[in-house]
Simulated scan of single mutants.
Amino acid sequence: MAHRQGLSDLNTGSGASPVNSPVGACVGDCPRCCAKVTQEQMTAIFPSASSAKITAVMDAFNSAFEKFELNRCLRKAHFFAQIRQEVGASINALTENLNYKESVLKEKFNYFRDNPAEAALYGRNDDHPADQEAIANRAYGKRNGNGSIESGEGWLYRGRGYIQITGKEIYQNVQNQMNARYPGNGLDIVANVEQTLEPKGGMLSAMAYWRWKKLNEKSDLGDTGAHVDAITDVVNYYTDSRESRKTHFNTTKVVFKVAECTNRPK
């Protein structure tokens, strides 16, 4: 097994991609803010990911991070803490799991509270598995730009990606942000939703969502648990993973040397 660097060594730079090699002009005097992320940094954040996946994610981020203004150490730390929670240590982008029990459907979704017989019909119980497609089309029908139940858009535009996006309107807004900030990006996540599960599409759509939701500005406010929670409120308000996201941020803020950044809030 190859030797793994300690977190304190990750910003010293090694080989062809030193962290202090800026890719563009920075505001302020911290050379790391506008530096490309490195293989070592990504491995520290995603310790179980394959080398090939690490490289693909790193290349996607490095190709576009300045376009989405993820060009501060603190912004990178907050961004990758959220990504780490969403895709795990192995970088496995997931499609939303709708394998809900009847009782949970009525707790989570207004549609099934209003239509309890359908919660019993489509939710998981002792008699049958959950009908996830039927659940999605009802839970998300006529929401976030989706059409009716019959349109199938609730199922088509269910949650996906490195930061899960849900609903046709959200997919389109993220695509619009990608097109505006990165013309010629080669992606169309509205027409090809599965692109959000691939390293390039997953990373760029997450960066576009981040920029669209003004999470850079929230990142700039600070590096406490409360600041992580404020970002989590936007990314996934109802999650039960708030403490895990803070734990990941404790790693990423060391990886990106937030404490030493001269562009962080005073």
Rank of each mutant, 00 (worst) to 15 (best):
N71R: 13
H3Y: 14
D229K: 07
D229E: 07
R113F: 04
V234M: 02
M203Q: 02
N185C: 09
G159N: 09
F79P: 03
W155M: 08
A139W: 02
V258K: 02
E102P: 07
G24T: 13
A35P: 06
Q132S: 03
Y140I: 00
D223N: 13
S148N: 15
F61C: 04
F65S: 05
I135A: 06
W212D: 07
Y171G: 00
A120W: 14
R75M: 13
K214C: 04
W212E: 05
L10V: 00
S51C: 11
L7G: 02
D29N: 14
P47W: 09
T12D: 15
K200P: 00
K266W: 05
R181V: 03
G123W: 07
E169C: 10
A130Y: 08
A139E: 02
Q175R: 02
L187M: 04
F80A: 00
Y171I: 00
F256G: 00
L10D: 01
L187R: 03
A49L: 08
E150P: 08
Q85M: 09
D220A: 11
G186Y: 12
N263P: 06
A89R: 14
D59K: 12
F68N: 10
A206D: 00
V37F: 05
A2M: 14
S90F: 11
K213V: 00
A25I: 09
T251I: 11
L94Q: 15
H227D: 15
P22W: 05
D229H: 01
E217M: 00
K76N: 06
C261Q: 07
F68K: 10
G159I: 09
S148R: 12
K53V: 12
V23W: 10
K218V: 04
F65G: 06
G123Y: 05
S103M: 09
K67A: 14
N179C: 01
E133A: 15
P116T: 00
M42S: 08
S90V: 11
A130E: 03
S244G: 12
A259R: 11
L74E: 04
S51D: 15
G154C: 03
D59Y: 06
N144C: 12
E260L: 08
P22D: 03
D29S: 14
S14I: 13
K108V: 05
A130Q: 04
E260F: 06
N110I: 11
L204P: 01
T232N: 00
E194C: 07
D114L: 13
T12N: 15
P129S: 09
E66M: 15
R211S: 14
A134D: 10
S17P: 03
N115G: 01
S241Q: 12
R32P: 07
D29P: 08
G28F: 10
F109L: 01
A191F: 06
E96C: 11
H248D: 09
A180E: 08
K36Q: 14
C30H: 12
Y238F: 07
S219G: 08
A49C: 08
D59A: 11
G201M: 01
K142F: 13
N71P: 09
P129A: 11
D59L: 10
A81S: 07
S51A: 14
N97E: 03
L197S: 09
P265V: 06
M58K: 15
S151Y: 14
K218M: 08
